[in-house]
Amino acid sequence: MLPTSTTRPRALFAMGRHHRDTMFPPSAVQRLSTYVDIDPAHVAEDFTEEPALEDVEILITSWGCPVLDEEVLARAPALKAVVHAAGSVKHHVTQACWDRGLTVSSAAAANAVPVAEYTVAAILFANKRVLEIGGLYRDHRSPLDWSRHFPGFGNYHRTVGVVGASLVGRKVLELLRPYDIDVLLADPHVSTLRAAAMGVRRVELDELVSASDVVSLHAPALPETRHLMDARRLSLMRDGATLVNTARGSLVDTEALTAEAASGRIHAVIDVTEPEVLPAGSPLYSLPNVLLTPHIAGSLGGELHRITGSALDEIERYCAGEPFAHAVHHAALATSA
């Protein structure tokens, strides 16, 4: 049952205005207004002297949301829930929120879909050597003996190593199931039995790296995962193997990757880097065995509406007195993005 006009909770948009305008078109605002009382034109981009905080029960957040610290929460006595229309909540949900007992939801599962789709496309193209063949075809303008140039290329029974059974990692595993591909998983938090139930074989990271034709990274950015793919581990990759990173740039030692890629020994599909924008002189921009994209794997364009729908579904559940389907649990943040 939807709340009546006298019992509807008060909500507030807290995000960059551009994201509010892009993600909440009139149709989404109309649906939202059936659940909550909200001024759709008001967007809190800065909580300093924000009068709407006083009676807000639900914050609808996204990219650009200011930090919810103790001082902000003290001015929001009625606040009970944060519905994040994006992925990670680590940038704005602080310890003070958990101490207060706020209920938090995230659209990370919705945002995982396009990242996984990009990743699977990268895997299939990498094994088929699409980028290299496309470049050679463009240069020669006539067919070559592709099997001679790329012996064993293709996806049939190639080995793909997935590093991290995160939301994106699990979605990649799901999307790979229809293909005749052998999949390995490295994740210290997943047992051999659980991996088997997921249809994959669990191995240690070094074994995965050395045994895979494609290594795809889906681990969170944590102190212990910084430079997970360092010079030593990159050297374990098979000659001609491909590294795919759609997770976090800090997982890879950029200098070591540049050296390996420049040698021509391995290939890379990189959507995230450290630093986020590489220096203009980085060889990774121009190496023929590297595809470098500017952090586009996540939700963009029409894909943002999937995130909006997820957030609206969560608000509907909250207003109906039901638990969030995509609740964020404080304890899980230590091992998640």
Rank of each mutant, 00 (worst) to 15 (best):
A74I: 09
A11L: 09
R8A: 07
F47D: 01
T61I: 02
P40L: 05
R75T: 15
G87W: 10
S105I: 02
D99F: 09
E71Y: 02
E57Y: 01
A109Y: 14
D37L: 04
V83S: 08
P66Q: 08
S33G: 08
H92V: 15
C97T: 11
L68I: 15
S88V: 03
A107N: 00
P25M: 09
C65E: 03
A109F: 13
L53T: 13
S33Y: 10
F24N: 01
C65K: 04
H42F: 07
P40E: 12
A74D: 11
P25T: 14
V89D: 00
T48D: 06
V82N: 00
C65I: 04
P25D: 10
R100L: 03
S33D: 06
L68D: 13
H91A: 15
S62W: 01
A108H: 03
V72L: 14
A44T: 12
T6Y: 03
E50T: 11
S106M: 11
T94W: 13
Q30P: 00
I60K: 12
R8D: 01
F47L: 11
A109Q: 14
G64Q: 00
P26L: 12
K80A: 06
K80W: 03
P25H: 09
V29K: 13
F47K: 00
L59P: 01
D37A: 09
A107L: 04
D37M: 02
S106L: 12
D99A: 14
A28V: 10
P40R: 10
T7E: 07
P66H: 11
D69V: 08
A109R: 15
V36P: 03
P9H: 05
A85D: 06
